[in-house]
Amino acid sequence: MTSHSDRHIFAGILPVERRLQEFVASLSVIASGFNSCPGDTGEGDQSMQRKSWASEECPMARSVDVIGDWGSLMILRQAFGGTTRFDDFQKELEISRNLLTARLKKLVVCGILERRPIAEEARRHEYVLTEMGEDLFATIIALRQWGDRWLFRPDPPPIRMLDGIDGSELEPIKVRSSRGREIKLADFRLRRRATGKQKARADNL
């Protein structure tokens, strides 16, 4: 279990997380304009923000549909830091109880968090990360590293992210191919997977 003293690694300083939340809100605009994602309709930003992207073919759109609501990543930040109780989420994030209830409910329904009794036959519940939720660890770290790099200039970021075993600094997250080569934006490509019918047709040629 994460100790209270370790939570600052994830909790950090609220101002930077609020800046990051503004960035997350902009993901809606990015997803709607990311023309390499098949399935985007090309509608205006306002209309796109009102629709669900849960059935889009673009994985970024589906991801934003799950965790892109205002406050959701803040909740996940606290969850990774060890927060599990509703009252603690509400106190640490300083958001309304109604909004917190709605966000937690969606994260549970989508499989990111699990709501379970704090003890056998207990009336109170806690919210813990599922395997699906824990898989967002690299995403949370990448977002923090992005904030550290860009949102404190010219000052250094106030919080260091460390290896809990040996105390060393975390390396910047890199994107690599299956062969280990570091991928830059200019090297990145998207390609639609062949369907079963397309594979069968190719095999018959």
Results as ranks from 00 to 15, higher is better:
Gln46Trp: 11
Arg153Val: 07
Ser52Asn: 02
Asp166Ala: 02
Thr130Leu: 04
Cys110Ala: 15
Ser168Ile: 03
Leu170Cys: 02
Gly111Trp: 05
Pro158Lys: 09
Thr139Ala: 10
Leu151Ser: 05
Ser3Ala: 12
Met161Asp: 06
Pro59His: 07
Ala194Phe: 11
Val108Glu: 10
Ile95Asp: 03
Val108Asn: 06
Pro117Thr: 13
Ile165Asn: 09
Trp53Gln: 07
Leu104Lys: 02
His125Leu: 01
Asn204Ile: 00
Arg85Tyr: 12
Asp88Lys: 08
Glu134Ala: 01
Ile95Asn: 00
Glu43Gln: 10
Glu92Phe: 02
Phe34Lys: 10
Trp53Pro: 07
Arg103Ala: 01
Gln198Tyr: 03
Pro158Val: 07
Asp88Tyr: 07
Pro117Cys: 10
Pro38Ile: 14
Asp166Asn: 08
Trp70Phe: 04
Met132Cys: 10
Gly180Leu: 05
Asn98Cys: 06
Gly82Gln: 07
Glu169Ala: 08
Pro15Trp: 00
Lys199Glu: 11
Ser5Trp: 12
Ala11Phe: 15
Asn204Glu: 15
Asp166Cys: 04
Leu162Cys: 09
Phe34Tyr: 15
Phe137Ser: 05
Glu126Ser: 10
Pro156Asp: 15
Arg123Asn: 14
Ala142Asn: 05
Glu17Phe: 06
Ala25Glu: 13
Ala54Gly: 12
Arg193Ala: 13
Leu99Trp: 04
Asp87Lys: 13
Asp135Val: 00
Glu182Phe: 03
Glu22Ala: 06
Lys105Asn: 06
Arg115Thr: 05
Gly71Asp: 08
Gly196Lys: 14
Ile95Pro: 01
Glu94Val: 03
Gly71Ile: 03
Glu94Trp: 00
Leu113Lys: 01
Arg77Met: 08
Ala79Cys: 08
Gly33Asp: 15
Ala186Ile: 12
Gln78His: 12
Phe89Tyr: 14
Leu185Thr: 13
Gly33Thr: 13
Ile183Lys: 06
Arg7Ile: 03
Gly147Asp: 11
Gly39Arg: 04
Thr2Val: 14
Glu43Asp: 12
Tyr127Arg: 01
Phe23Asn: 12
Arg149Cys: 04
Ser3Asp: 14
Gly196Asp: 14
Ala138Gln: 09
Gln49Pro: 00
Ala138His: 08
Arg77Cys: 04
Glu120Asp: 13
Ser47Gln: 15
Leu20Val: 02
Ile13Trp: 08
Glu126Cys: 13
Ser63Phe: 09
Asp69Trp: 11
Gln145Ser: 10
Leu190Trp: 15
Ser36Met: 13
Lys106Arg: 14
Val16Gln: 14
Ala25Asp: 15
Arg116Met: 07
Pro157Ala: 15
Gly39Met: 05
Trp70Cys: 05
Arg115Gly: 08
Lys197Glu: 15
Ala79Arg: 03
Ile112Cys: 08
Arg124Val: 10
Leu73Trp: 14
Arg153Gln: 10
His8Val: 13
Leu136Gln: 01
Phe89Thr: 03
Arg123Tyr: 04
Asp163Trp: 04
Arg176Glu: 14
Arg85Met: 10
Gln78Phe: 01
Leu151Trp: 00
Glu134His: 10
Ile67Arg: 00
Arg124Phe: 06
